[in-house]
Amino acid sequence: MIRISVNGYEHTVDADPATPLLYVLRDHLALNGAKFGCGLGQCGACTVLVDGKAAFSCLTPISVLPGRRITTLEGLGTPEEPGQVQKAFIAEQAAQCGYCIPGMIMRAHALLQARPDPSEAEIRAAMDPQLCRCGTHMRILAAIRRAAREGAVPSYVGTIEGTRP
């Protein structure tokens, strides 16, 4: 049994300590945001925040996570109340198939927390670990610029209503 904190909620998980966080999020906690893409840290579809920093959940075993704060896409907002970065992605219609977008949003969120007013070069460098196959890159960049214009991104340290799986 391993205790992890996801979106402000504590969960006791019955899984092998070597299990990557991605599988626990999706399979044990029924959270859809983080996606399996490669299992190798090459595509970023599984990106979540660990203590506010972007991390590949497909490579992070749950054994290293007790005491650390995990935020997933679900922790940023809900369909009724999207988060700031999510709103910006909707405003720019920054998705085609959308499969990579949750990871994009998480990494963009981490960037904007660290650098509220990033330059274009900083955005591109920060997003480089994330792959998109539909070619939605121009809109993703526009959405991140839009989110930055909207002001500081909230850090979501506490419990967020509506995110309990």
């Binding site: 859809n32 945001g33 999510q86 909707i90 959308g98 499969y99």
Partner: peptide, 27 residues
Amino acid sequence: LPRVDIPAKLMGAAAYVHDLRLPGMLH
């Protein structure tokens, strides 16, 4: 017209076959 499928995809709703969870489902 804003794409009808985008909000669910951006908010972590079940949007893909990957997200399908049926009772008693095995992997």
